[in-house]
Structures are given as structure tokens and as C-alpha cells.
Amino acid sequence: MITDIEVFYQPEGRLRMTMGDRSYVEVKPAWAAPLSQTGKYLVLLDGKDREIILITDPTKELKPETWSLLQNELQRRYLSVKIDKILNTKTIFGSTYWTVMTERGERDFVTQSLQENAQWLGPEHLLVIDVDGNRFELPDINALDEESKNHLFMTV
């Protein structure tokens, strides 16, 4: 357990940190491998994007209140989403239109060149990138319902 890390917002909106006798006026949490090692390897960066510390397992190594604050900041920084359900897909002239249910609510988006923009990160793990560069993750396609699987199968 790392006990000497304290994080707090000061002024409002700016995350600061003290670690032992050192103080950092700007801190950014970032996942080192957000797709393959979800929830592990958290890096805390300073204002110049230099690593302050690497935390292998933040849930175990950080104090609950520190972890809670960092989670809040991570939630704000990572706007990529996980798809829970594929409601509809249709392909017109090489553009695929998706309507999906995500943890952030319902969303429609368009993808092109699925060969490049649907990336298999593992046998069942898919990352779909839309025309604007937004990332939609399907961590386990086997966990999807049948309708979603059918849409996915006919699309990707």
C-alpha cells in the first residue's frame, strides 16, 4: 500500500498531488495499457507529461479516498466507451452506420474502411474507431446478446 500519496483539487478543477515531501502542482492519471491491462498499470504524470510514479494495481495499492479521486479524474479523461449492445448496423456505399447502447447511453456513429478501423485486440476483443476517431470497445464479443452478435457478424 502506497500511503504517502495525497491527491486533491486545488484550485478547483486542477488535480494536485503530494508524495512524501514532494509536491506536484499538476497531475494527470493515465493508463499505461488501457486496452490489454484494464484496471492495471496506472501512471501519474506531471504537468510536462513526465512519469511521477507507476502504480501496478491501484485498487490494492492506493488508499480508497485517493483511488476514488483518481477514478473520478480518469472518468473525465477517458471518453472512450464500451459497447453493451448493438442495436442496429447498416452498410451503405462502404460506410457502416451503427446504433449502439454504451455505458454512457445510446449512441449512433459511422465507420469507414472497417478493415483498418475495426481492430481485433484479442480473439474476442474488438475496438471500433469511428470516422472522427472516437473509440468504441467490445471487450468480449461472446458476452453480447444474440441480436448484437448477428449485427456484428454481418458487419465486421
Partner: peptide, 26 residues
């Protein structure tokens, strides 16, 4: 710039950092 989006931030004269809104890359 954030992952898959961004946020509009305003720094006030009193030193506060205020998030006006967040948005996707769209």
C-alpha cells in the same frame, strides 16, 4: 484534448480552472 474527446476549460482570473463542457471528438 482527452482520449476520444476533449473539454473546454476556462481559467478564471481568481485562479480557478473551470470545465465549461466535455465533448466527443465529433
Amino acid at each position: 484534448p482527452l482520449v476520444s474527446g476533449g473539454r473546454l476549460i476556462v481559467d478564471t482570473k481568481s485562479g480557478e480552472e473551470i470545465t465549461v463542457c466535455s465533448y466527443s471528438l465529433r
